[in-house]
């Protein structure tokens, strides 16, 4: 009912989508087979969905299952479509929207290279300590920090390192899991 109130994904939509863009974390359980990542990524590019972050690794070796954690931004309506389109892929077992399905944990790891000397060096170490960043490599002129946490925490740490001689950053992308005793 009230089709005119519903935004649409059709080629014919004339009204703009009025719904707000949301960011959701999807956890996708897939067969670990050749080409699975291409299938998932291809689906996103073919249908024009946005990926903010994507991580994939085998998680159950015996059953040859991988978990893909993908952060997407879309309207609520498109989010439902993304989930259904993913589930339609033959090697996809389950898709969970961790953002809507109860509480979940999100973590990311980053390796951050900072070069500097003198006062900057001392300040860098103080901040690293406050963020519980580990020093995984050190030279007289540089550090490499390993920091884990929510993406926001990593963003803050990177922001603070910027004026202190930030050289480069590498991030793993998000890993997420639901809280409580239930698994996927």
């Amino acid at each position: 009912m009230n089709a005119h109130l519903q935004p649409t994904g059709s080629a014919y939509f004339i009204t703009k989508e009025t719904q707000e863009i949301e960011r959701h974390t999807l956890s996708v359980l897939v067969d670990n087979e050749p080409g699975i990542l291409a299938r998932v990524v291809g689906l996103f590019s073919a249908r024009g969905y946005n990926i903010e972050s994507l991580t994939v690794s085998e998680t159950e070796h015996g059953r040859r299952l991988s978990r893909i954690t993908v952060v997407v931004t879309a309207t609520p309506r498109t989010l439902v479509q993304i989930k259904l389109q993913l589930e339609r892929l033959v090697p996809v077992h389950k898709v969970h929207d961790l953002t809507t399905e109860g509480a979940s944990l999100e973590r990311e790891l980053a390796l951050i290279k900072v070069a500097g000397s003198g006062d900057h060096r001392a300040e860098t170490l103080r901040l690293a300590d406050a963020f519980r960043a580990q020093i995984v490599d050190a030279t007289v002129e540089s550090f490499v920090f390993e920091v884990t946490g929510k993406p926001g925490k990593i963003d803050s740490f990177i922001g603070l390192m910027q004026p202190l001689g930030l050289v480069e950053v590498v991030r793993t992308g998000l890993a997420a899991i639901s809280r409580g005793q239930q698994g996927m």
Partner: peptide, 19 residues
């Protein structure tokens, strides 16, 4: 035009493909 498609109906949709 989708936003003017059958504006006053209740719609039942039978399909084997959830998407």
């Amino acid at each position: 035009r989708v936003d003017a498609f059958s504006p006053n109906s209740r719609k039942i949709h039978v399909d084997i493909d959830p998407s």
